[in-house]
Computed example of a mutant assay.
Amino acid sequence: MGVDFTVFKGSASGEIVEATGHRDPGPTEVIVKVSHCGVCGTDEHYRHVDQGLGHEGIGVITEVGSMVHAVSEFRVGDRVGMSWFHKFCGHCDACLTGRQNQCANKTEFGTADLDQGCFGTAVAWDISALFKIPEEIASEYAGPLMCGGATVWAPLADYGLKPGSRVGVLGVGGLGHLAIQFAAKMGMEVVVFSGTESKRQQALELGASEFYATSAGSLEEVEKIHALLITTSVAPDMKSFFPVMALGALVFPLTISMEHLKVSPLDLVIYGLKIVGSATAPTASTRAMLRFAGKQGIKPIIEKFPLTQAGVVNAMTKLREGKMRYRGVLVAA
């Protein structure tokens, strides 16, 4: 049967264009009718490319491929989420050791399936990269968790941090406001750094233990932290943070940026820092993130837009201008 779909794509001029397509599900694929999709900053990187946009999709399965019932528990009617990754091979070293996000043979947003995207009415998706959404999470809040939530969860859950660890979060935005909530609910001391005092109250309400405005001067009096999650849209001056980093502290640059993070080999030696590249989370970790968010009531602060051409344009413009508070979500009629 398959599905005819509408999708909103980028273009060489940067304009958002409407296109149509058709997909039949492969043996291990399902057809998902999209109801919601988060608007991620990374979508902006592909606005000038002829491809379907959107990679924080939520929807309901309407059709399954011939092998789906034999190899998975996914069924028609399940509410599911899709993220950056479209398919994992299941047999490379990364997959076999639970690091599917580093799969050698993965297909993903920006390099495969360019005809479709979650800024659309429906997609065909492989079950290896599909996630059931817990009942406790409303669809409008689930979308931003699929990429934004998984991005901040992985450093907190997969790199040895534990309750009582002092975790720095730089920036209170689309990623930062989720990182604060997750770290606080995981029992960590959340130390928030922001440019000004304007977001102090909100950071504390989200679960921050401490808040420091970086424009106020030196941070040398801050008790040392065990990790720093960089969630700002621009790379920070790392020298200002060296005095507050515990020996062997982890640094996670989480915003996709082409800017250089200026750290010298001598800085690494003196402070014993570990800079960790982390992109979303492996399969089991993403499942754990969704369960945790549902049980703990963690949800993004969102602004809604219609899942239409005009809605996509408005949402992406607001995000580009830095006016989104804090995650945009497209909602199908």
Rank of each mutant, 00 (worst) to 15 (best):
H69D: 14
E63F: 01
Q102M: 15
S72R: 04
T97C: 09
G65T: 02
R75G: 06
E56R: 06
V49W: 01
A70P: 05
R79G: 05
D93A: 15
C95F: 09
G81V: 02
H86Y: 14
Q102G: 08
Q100P: 02
S66F: 00
C92N: 13
V64G: 07
G59I: 08
G81F: 00
H48T: 15
G90Y: 07
M82N: 04
D50K: 06
G59V: 08
G81D: 01
V71T: 13
I61D: 04
F74E: 03
L53P: 12
S66D: 05
G54F: 12
K87G: 03
D93S: 15
F88C: 12
G77Q: 10
G81M: 02
S83K: 04
V80R: 00
H69P: 08
Q100S: 14
G54N: 11
C92Q: 14
S66T: 08
E56D: 09
Q102L: 15
H86M: 10
G77E: 10
L53A: 11
V60E: 05
E56W: 07
C95Q: 11
G65C: 03
F74S: 01
S83T: 12
F74C: 04
G59E: 06
L96F: 00
D78Q: 10
T97K: 12
M67Y: 13
G90R: 07
V60F: 00
H91L: 08
H86A: 09
G52P: 12
D50N: 11
H86D: 10
G77A: 09
L53W: 13
V80T: 01
G98T: 04
H91A: 10
Q51E: 14
E63P: 01
G98Q: 03
D50V: 05
G59Y: 07
W84Y: 15
T62P: 00
R79H: 08
V68F: 01
G59S: 10
M82G: 07
D50M: 05
L53T: 11
C95R: 09
F74R: 03
D50S: 10
C92A: 13
V71A: 07
